[in-house]
Computed example of a mutant assay.
Amino acid sequence: MDESKFSQLAQAELAAIEAAIEAAITRADADCDVQMSAGGILEVELEDGAKVVINQHAAMQEIWLAARTGAHHFRPEGGRWIDTRDGQDLRAVLTHVLRTLSDGELVVF
């Protein structure tokens, strides 16, 4: 896949994730912050200061997710983003991470 196509796919996924997280925060009336910075880095800061960082890595053509619960790398496959180690879906992993870090308060997808 060329870099332009990858960037387009990754940016669309990050925008969808940002919107889903913001909706989950609103539903839960949680005191969390979501910030998308230039360069496609999405940061979520929870009430206790825990952070989740999701970004695109163009050189590897992956989306990376990092939190104190662990780090994951996802590649596009069949319209989904799949973990390179265990085959899990990005949205499922993100939902699990945010539920864990927010004590069940944030349900994203």
Rank of each mutant, 00 (worst) to 15 (best):
S37N: 12
S37G: 14
A38W: 08
A38I: 10
A38G: 15
G39R: 12
G39I: 09
G39M: 11
G40K: 07
I41P: 12
I41H: 14
I41Y: 10
L42W: 05
E43N: 15
E43Y: 04
E43L: 14
E43M: 14
V44N: 08
V44L: 14
V44H: 05
E45N: 13
L46Q: 14
E47G: 14
E47A: 15
G49F: 05
G49Y: 03
K51W: 05
V52H: 08
V52Y: 08
V52P: 08
V53R: 15
I54L: 10
I54A: 07
N55Q: 14
N55I: 07
Q56S: 15
Q56G: 15
H57F: 13
H57I: 07
A58E: 14
A58K: 13
A58R: 12
M60W: 04
M60E: 13
M60S: 15
Q61N: 06
Q61W: 07
E62G: 03
I63H: 07
W64L: 11
W64G: 06
W64V: 09
W64K: 14
W64I: 09
A66E: 06
A66G: 15
A66Y: 04
A66R: 12
A67G: 15
R68L: 06
R68V: 08
T69D: 08
G70Q: 00
G70D: 02
H72P: 07
H72T: 02
H73N: 04
H73L: 08
F74W: 01
R75G: 06
P76L: 00
P76T: 01
E77T: 02
G78Q: 10
G78W: 05
G79T: 00
G79S: 01
G79C: 00
R80I: 01
W81N: 06
W81K: 00
I82M: 12
I82G: 02
I82L: 04
D83L: 01
D83M: 00
D83A: 06
T84D: 07
T84V: 11
T84F: 00
R85V: 11
D86H: 09
D86T: 04
G87S: 06
G87I: 04
G87F: 02
Q88A: 12
Q88L: 09
Q88K: 13
D89R: 06
L90T: 02
L90M: 05
L90W: 04
L90A: 02
A92P: 10
V93L: 03
V93P: 08
V93H: 06
L94F: 04
L94V: 03
T95V: 05
T95R: 10
T95H: 14
T95D: 15
V97H: 05
V97M: 01
V97N: 09
L98K: 01
L98D: 03
L98S: 05
R99H: 03
R99I: 02
R99V: 09
T100V: 05
T100W: 01
T100R: 10
T100A: 10
T100P: 00
T100C: 06
T100S: 11
S102G: 13
D103M: 02
D103A: 09
